[in-house]
């Protein structure tokens, strides 16, 4: 319980710091529209809520599978998702690990730097980076889809329910990669080539498949058609697809946890 209180407290104050940074950007007119801040604030909070649901269900499934009642079994669960390499690299990033083929350097370096600032709390920092990246991904996706669709919420929720979406909220490089891919899509929709190139490079530095970001460029004229095609035809179809995806995620989550 003590660690839970501590973890929640740290998350609370870090969220406050993030909110103050956004307020600073509004005060100096980098973010010009206060209504947009409130809108995207809601999107970010929704992403956090989705992450909390995924993690809570994962903990519940783990306890059921193990026949125990340890509500703070996250460390054990992380190993079942193969994120221990990320956490090991965050604690001790090494050239052999990064350039010898284990993983690309950006995520472990960020987690290491922030982990050091947080008095060697690497797991907590890695988790925080994942949640922060998931929030930013949600906002970027919302903005991208919103360019071509008047009601982007439904498609963003579908994206949050895609198979293995729960990996976004685990301490690994997945959410950071998705964030840069989403940034690439967003920048193409705003015709911001500099941001697109930066996002692509950062995606490549985060994941070996990050080069996929550059493949978005020849497809940018097809975004409106793609988003229109992705929109379910009616509410019933939307809810059926959403339900199927959620059930698939549930099964995948349980399958992974059972494997511990």
């Amino acid at each position: 319980m003590a660690e839970f209180v501590g973890g929640v407290g740290a998350a609370f104050i870090m969220a406050a710091v993030a909110a103050l940074i956004v307020k600073f950007l509004v005060d100096i007119n980098i973010i010009k529209n206060r209504e947009n801040v409130l809108l995207y604030g809601k999107v970010a909070i929704s992403a956090i809520a989705v992450g909390i649901v995924y993690i809570s269900v994962a903990v519940f499934m783990y306890n059921v599978a193990k026949g125990q009642t340890n509500f703070f079994a996250l460390g054990e669960i992380f190993s079942s998702f193969g994120v221990e390499k990320s956490l090991r690299m965050a604690e001790e990033p090494s050239a052999a690990g990064m350039f010898g083929g284990l993983m690309m350097p950006l995520y472990p370096c960020l987690a290491h730097i922030f982990g050091k600032l947080a008095f060697d709390q690497y797991v907590l920092t890695a988790q925080f980076i994942s949640f922060a990246a998931a929030c930013v991904s949600a906002c970027l996706l919302y903005a991208w889809i919103g360019k071509y669709n008047e009601s982007p919420t439904e498609l963003v929720l579908l994206a949050a329910s895609l198979p293995f979406a729960f990996m976004l909220f685990m301490p690994s490089y997945t959410s950071l990669t998705i964030m840069f891919l989403a940034m690439a899509l967003y920048s193409l929709s705003r015709d911001n080539l500099k941001l697109f190139v930066a996002a692509g490079i950062l995606a490549c530095l985060t994941c070996k498949l990050g080069f996929v970001a550059f493949l978005f460029y020849p497809l940018k004229d097809k975004f409106p058609k793609f988003i229109k095609a992705a929109q379910p035809k009616n509410r019933a179809a939307y809810k059926i697809i959403l339900t199927v995806l959620i059930l698939y995620n549930g099964a995948a989550l349980y399958w992974l946890i059972r494997g511990v």
Partner: peptide, 30 residues
């Protein structure tokens, strides 16, 4: 100096071991 989560956890742990002090020192600060 310790990270905030550890400070709060320490307060909680120490308070759990001493009910009377938890009411006037540890729980109020949490």
């Amino acid at each position: 100096a310790k990270w905030i989560s550890e400070s709060l956890a320490t307060s909680y742990d120490v308070g759990a071991g001493n009910f009377s002090l938890s009411l006037i020192i540890y729980h109020p600060q949490i």
